[in-house]
Design a protein around this nucleic acid. Structure first.
Lengths: 145, 145
DNA sequence: CAGCATCCTTGGAGATACTG
DNA sequence: CAGTATCTCCAAGGATGCTG
């Protein structure tokens, strides 16, 4: 990406909203964070309320769940419905946009599942191209500075 | 340091290798980190050497590039070829597994690009379901506690 | 029940210096 | 050129207590 040159470029954490300058980077920021995808997956089959999500994803803290939901809502991926009843109740559900995201996301999830064993296998192999291994060594004609 | 006597299971940071217990979580951890996908995208069209990658991704620090490459290599997504020439040279390229990942990943990137505007639009709307907004309010018959 | 405000810890990541 | 080692810093995120 090419945003630089102004403020202490590298220092600024560029957490971008989806749809910012680099949509890919922004999207990966979102789905890459610890919880967004898990929440989306919980909401894919059906609508859920806050406490249901907490129980469905026990590891998430209340703070993170709220934060994740707010972010997903701001990005238009989920909708939030408040019922002003005596015990408050809030429902969350995927928007049309959210559902559309689940399609390519599902592809990725399928890949992860299908190739799990291949990756495991890769990790077991010590290495094929050790630095110093003579297999790939070829002389260069000159340094190209 | 780390004199904890107990394990504190839930607190342990579960940065997993691809192919661990939850393949989806692990994959998202990988593609979610700041640089992996950018590196993969650089390597998709063609083989690249270390310094080429640095120039292609100016924002990345040398440390992070090395770390990212090592991780991707460990996961079997890229291969590393060392030439023991006088000015050292190392080539990186996608493995078959890496290329296969680019397929679903590409789907996600396409989605991000296609829906950029829709997400921007979502962010501009103040809110549709403000807490307190009477639109969605419905009485509940009873608390279901 | 759903959510906010605050404090505190952890480790991810940049900057810098050195090596083969 | 292609790394490794070390220091430091910041913000992501957990824990806790309070509110409507």
């Amino acid at each position: 990406m090419a945003q630089d040159s102004s403020v202490k470029a590298g220092l600024m954490k560029d957490r971008l909203a989806l749809g910012a300058v680099c949509p890919t980077r922004a999207l990966l920021d979102r789905i890459g964070d610890r919880w967004s995808v898990l929440v989306l997956m919980e909401l894919q089959p059906r609508i859920r309320r806050f406490s249901e999500l907490r129980r469905a994803i026990p590891d998430i803290s209340q703070r993170m769940l709220t934060q994740t939901l707010r972010q997903l809502e701001a990005d238009g991926l989920i909708s939030r419905t408040v019922f002003a009843t005596v015990p408050p109740r809030v429902d969350y559900e995927l928007t049309e946009l959210g559902h559309s995201l689940m399609v390519p996301l599902g592809g990725l999830i399928v890949w992860a599942d299908e190739n799990r064993e291949r990756v495991r296998a890769a990790r077991r192999q010590p290495d094929t191209t050790t630095p110093g291994a003579p297999s790939a060594i070829r002389p260069m004609s000159a340094a190209q500075g």
